[in-house]
Each structure stands twice: as C-alpha cells, then as structure tokens.
Design a binder for these strands. Structure first.
Length: 424
RNA sequence: GUGGGCGUAGCUCAGGUGGUUAGAGCGUCAGGUUGUGGCCCUGAAGGCCGGGGGUUCAAGUCCCCUCGCUCACCCCA
C-alpha cells in the first residue's frame, strides 16, 4: 500500500482524461473568445473577506470555506468560486467598462464528496461588469448555451428566472417567509431549519413532503416592479430571437446571496436530479460595490467541469482524445542514433518517441506498437554503417522502406501529411 | 454534518459455514524468433488481504474502532 494518497475530495486527473480537460477549456476559450472576452487568472488564495460577501447565510461561507491564518497573520481562504475574485480584481485594477472576462480553474469547498462533487473542482465561466443592459444578460446566457452545443451536448435544459430588484426580492422573501411560516407544520424538519436561515432556499428542497407546500408558495413574478419585469421581458425575447430554448422557472433561486435580477441555470437532462446543475449564473449588481468598488453592475455564469463531463459521458459526446505518437524510433545500438533522429524529427514537427535502456528489438517494436505510432523508424547495425534508416508502416503490411538518414525527416513529413490529407 | 454499501496484485475481481505456502483475467517484464510489433504459446515479477485492536489453537473470513472510497441526504458546480 502506498504511504500517501490524495486527500478526500481531491484527485489526480490522469491521461487520457487530462487531455479531455484541456480540450474542454480550449472549446470554452474558443466560444467566448469569439465574443471578445479576455482571460483573467486570479489567485487561488484571497483575503477571506472577498468571499464572505457571497452571503453570511450560505453554506459556502459558513461551513465550506478552506480558510486559515497565514504566517503574516492574514486570514485567507482558498477561493470557493471565482466571481468574487474577478470582482475584487476589477476593483483593484479598474479596467474600463464594459469589462468582459473569462476564467478557468479550480475552486475549493469543504464538503462531503460524492458523484460530481469534489472538494477541489474546476469551473469555467465569464463575467461582464459595468452594464445594466439586458442584452448583456442575453449574450451571457447565450454564450453558455453555445458552449454546451459546441461540446456536442444535446440534453441540456436552460431554466431562467428573475429575482427582481433588491427591493422586490426583499418583499418576496418576506412574503415567502410568512407563507412558509404559516405552513411550517407541513414542512419537513430540514426545511423548517432552512426557513430560519433563508426562506428562498426552501424552494430548492427536493423532498416529497415539501412539494405540496412549495407548489402553493407565492411566486416572485407578482413582486417584480415594472422596471424589473421589463428588463426580464427583453431578456426572454432576446433569447427567443436567437433561438436559445429555455423554460421559465419562477422557483429558481441560486445558492449565493449576491444574485438579483436575472438568474439562470443549465441542467443536464440525463443526470440524476440531485446533481443536475451543470452551471448557473445571473446578475449581481451589488457585488462590486460590496467589495469597495464603484457601484458597478455585473452578470456572469460558472460551469462545472466534472458535471458537464459526466453529462458528456451520458450522451457519448466529447470523448477523451487519443494522443498517439507519429513515429517511434527503434535503435538497436546504444541509443545515440535514436537521440539524433528524435531531435531531428521533433524539430520538424513530428511527434517522435523512443525506448531507453537498450532493450531488445522485439521489446522496442512492442513499445512502438503500443505507442500508437503510425511509423517505426529502425536503425540497426547495418543501417548505422550505411547511414540509412528503415521506415516501417505499423498499420499496413507493405514492405519497409530504406532511406538515407539525410532524407528521413523529409520522407516522414510527406508520408504523414499525405495520410492526414487522405483521412480528412 | 447524517445514513447505506464497499476496501484482496498496477487495473477488474474470485476467495460457502474461520483451517497449511492467498487465486484468476487483463496489464507489465522475459523467452519462444541471437534484426522486426499486433495473434498465439511458456514463464517470471508483483500482495503488511486499507490500518489498529479483539475473539480463537488458528482470521482475508467473526467482533469493535479508525481511515479511505462510494451512493444518498444537506447544499451546490
């Protein structure tokens, strides 16, 4: 048994899954890059105050933070999400608005791990700071949708809602509180607890006991002021106009307290209901001001890699790519020829691998086969003396070709490119 | 934090009611072919049976504790 393994909720992403992770971010970067978003890489560690703004009543802040005091007596925390970091960065650097950023990277929450939920988990996301325009909401929601489409996912459901202005929201929360209070006896004990902390969150309960109570709960739309209702209507119409399908979910409330106005969530249709949120976001017009910046509106979303990848698995799309070598160099001598040949091939842009430890020719050929390389280049005693090399096609039975060492790279480049041309 | 299931070779897993040196398949390595991969055959390496304690003449097997994984709840991505 090994002395060490990963800490709970942490894991190694190994090949070929690691390649898939990289490609996932590549696809995301391409999608949002077309819309002009810039990459921001915030630190993993921030002053804990940056994150307590997420809401004193949220689990993310109260019990899931990885926080500690560093050697300089600073109370810091590993980020549980990146929106607050992006806003802090905005306040610190004050870029011109509208500020459009994208990010990708790990976040940390001290939770009990389970399927699709880890203590270190990666998210990709975008944020737009500095505009109240509902067309920002539309673009953000659409970009998330476009990304899922780009991955090949079909079974994604987009739910949207509006929490109205802070004032609307406060009046609604009060009404909700009164209502749930009046039905307290019908609620599950867990939801009774939730009610004490945050009435909105009771709407999230998936317990069957709570379902009838929630079904009759007051709805947010009757608390929207005309301004909020208008904003939301433009958002809905915009999504219609660009053909992004959505369902209105007046009970959609998200976990973080900073949301107001438009909120939305992407759900995987094939995942189990408990962990079906692939991503979500909304407006957080007060967050920048909360962090000490000028009153600056914001919209954004975050998408979880793990869950989205699970959804991809369920739909058999976005499979892990295979990373094969082009050429495997077999050197029957001391290995010095493989050194020079690999150097030359790699300089020519060819993915070239080799063996070490002076293994037998048979062993090296086996390794060549396993590497997935298309060609093996063989250099034995007679080739070394003659200044040649043998090129053997590992996927056909055609006779191997003897070429002068000087022509080796050029020959392989043309053979490989003609193969690539034929396959595409 | 609460509850269920599970921890045996690198991986996937066998190992009725406790009984000598713990097995298989795959993978790895070597050989069969002293310069040729895949298929086949032969062999080898590789295990504190998650850890600790207990019961027993005897524990991979039974009991307790602990750690980890996993599923669900909670919450969230």
């Amino acid at each position: 048994m090994p002395d060490f393994s990963t800490s709970p909720g942490m894991r190694d992403i190994t090949a070929p899954e690691s390649f898939r992770w990289r490609r996932f971010v590549d696809v995301f970067e391409h999608t949002v890059g077309l819309a002009g978003y810039d990459l921001v890489i915030p630190p993993l560690l921030e002053d804990i105050g940056v994150f307590t703004r997420l809401g004193e009543a949220t689990d993310v802040v109260t019990k899931e933070m990885y926080d500690f005091v560093d050697k300089g007596e600073r109370h810091v925390a590993l980020r549980p999400e990146q929106t607050a970091s992006i806003c802090r960065s905005f306040v610190e650097h004050r870029p011109t608005t509208p500020f459009k950023a994208w990010y990708a990277g790990p976040n940390f929450r001290y939770e009990k791990p389970q399927r699709g939920r880890y203590r270190q988990f990666d998210q990709v996301g975008i944020e737009v700071l500095g505009s109240l325009d509902p067309y920002v909401d539309i673009e953000v929601i659409q970009l998330g949708w476009t990304f899922f489409v780009a991955l090949g996912l079909r079974n994604v459901e987009l739910a949207i809602n509006s929490l109205g202005t802070p004032d609307d929201r406060a009046r609604y929360v009060a009404a909700l509180h009164d209502y749930f209070e009046s039905r307290n006896a019908d609620l599950s004990p867990e939801s009774q607890q939730t009610l004490l902390r945050n009435p909105l969150r009771v709407l999230d309960s998936k317990r069957s006991q709570d379902a009838p109570v929630i079904a009759e709960a007051p709805l947010i739309n009757s608390y929207w002021c005309s301004e909020a209702a208008e904003h939301f209507e433009v958002v809905c119409e915009g999504l219609n106009a660009v053909g992004v399908p959505y369902t209105l979910d007046l009970k959609l409330v998200r976990g973080l307290d900073y949301y107001r106005g438009t909120t939305f969530e992407y759900r995987g249709g094939t995942l189990d209901s408990a962990q079906n949120a692939l991503g979500g976001g909304g407006r957080y017009d007060g967050l920048v001001a909360d962090l000490g910046g000028p009153d600056t509106p914001g919209v954004g979303f975050a998408i979880g890699l793990d869950r989205t990848l699970l959804a991809c698995d369920d739909e058999n799309v976005f499979a892990a790519p295979s990373e094969n070598a082009d050429v495997f160099v077999v050197d029957i001598g001391d290995g010095s020829d493989a050194l020079t040949v690999c150097t030359e091939l790699r300089a020519g842009g060819i993915r070239a691998e080799r063996s070490w430890d002076q293994r037998s020719m048979k062993a090296q050929m086996k390794a060549a086969n396993r590497s997935g390389a298309r060609f093996a280049v063989l250099i034995g005693e007679s080739e070394r003396e003659a200044g040649t090399a043998l090129i053997r096609d590992l996927r056909s039975d055609e006779e191997q070709l003897s070429v002068a060492r000087a022509d080796l790279t050029g020959t392989l480049i043309s053979r490989l490119s003609s193969l690539q041309g034929a396959s595409s």
